[in-house]
């Protein structure tokens, strides 16, 4: 039923502050009182920022946009967990009722050589765009399409493809992986397209060039710890990584290029 009345929280926040990419960063500690448990995590940071502005200190920079868990723009390490303690949840959808009065919360940016910090908690994830540019598409021009029903796609295949396509590109998989590997992200796109007839013609070229780009960006290798899957807000399964591995070796062994 209606959730039990929660009391407002007092929190200690340890937040990574870094003025710009080339400047050294450090943790700064802030006290925040009277936080409603119904607030989202980002609303809590909004309140902190309001107070910082009042005191004349520059607000904490963090990326965010849709605030409904779909755009993939937000993301930070909260007490060592990507997007915080909840499963299948982005930072914007994490609510303060998940925390206790008196808690200390450590907040850090995603850490990866391929995701340099821009400021405070905001990082540059353009490496993901470059991985998609390497082959995460079907080469079809506008106007070239045949009728949508011309290819029958078994419902199971479509569902499984959709499971992979649901990736929001937030980077939590990279952040949570001890190797800062982007294999879950990369595999989600490979798996989405390879399970559809439309993606089949380019399957070999796609997987080879996407992996080559992945490696070039400086992401680590997948060592199958599956922390990515646990951290993924879109519930992308590591089975897609296995599919990627399969596709990669098949392509490597049979591609004529």
């Amino acid at each position: 039923m209606i959730s039990p009345a929660h009391h407002n929280l007092s929190l200690t926040l340890k937040i990574w502050r870094q003025p710009h990419a080339d400047a050294p960063g450090e943790f700064r500690t802030y006290q925040l009182q009277d936080v409603s448990p119904h607030m989202s995590f980002l609303e809590m940071l909004d309140i902190l920022n309001e107070q910082l502005i009042e005191k004349g200190e520059e607000p904490v920079a963090f990326d965010h946009d849709c605030r409904e868990g779909i755009c993939g723009m937000c993301g930070m390490m909260i007490n060592g967990q990507a997007h915080g303690p909840d499963h299948e949840t982005t930072t914007c959808q994490l609510h303060m009722r998940r925390f206790e009065d008196g808690d200390t919360i450590v907040i850090e940016p995603w850490r990866s050589r391929a995701f340099p910090v821009i400021r405070d908690l905001a990082v540059d994830r353009s490496a993901f765009d470059r991985i998609i540019q390497a082959g995460g598409y079907v080469s079809v021009k506008t106007g070239q399409a045949i009728d949508g029903n011309a290819n029958l796609i078994p419902q199971q295949d479509q569902e499984s493809s959709m499971d992979a396509a649901a990736c929001i590109g937030c980077g939590a998989c990279v952040a949570a992986c001890k190797n800062a590997s982007a294999m879950l992200f990369t595999s989600a796109k490979v798996s989405h397209l390879v399970q559809l007839p439309q993606g089949a013609p380019e399957r070999k070229k796609r997987v080879l060039s996407m992996i080559s780009q992945h490696d070039e960006e400086g992401f680590g290798a997948c060592t199958n710890t599956y922390e990515c899957e646990a951290a993924c807000p879109a519930a992308i399964s590591v089975s897609h990584i296995a599919r990627l591995n399969r596709e990669y070796m098949k392509a490597m062994l049979t591609s004529k290029e």
Partner: peptide, 12 residues
């Protein structure tokens, strides 16, 4: 048609 061709996984 265009979206299907791009690999948009519409419900089936």
């Amino acid at each position: 048609d265009q979206c299907v061709a791009q690999g948009v996984p519409f419900a089936r």
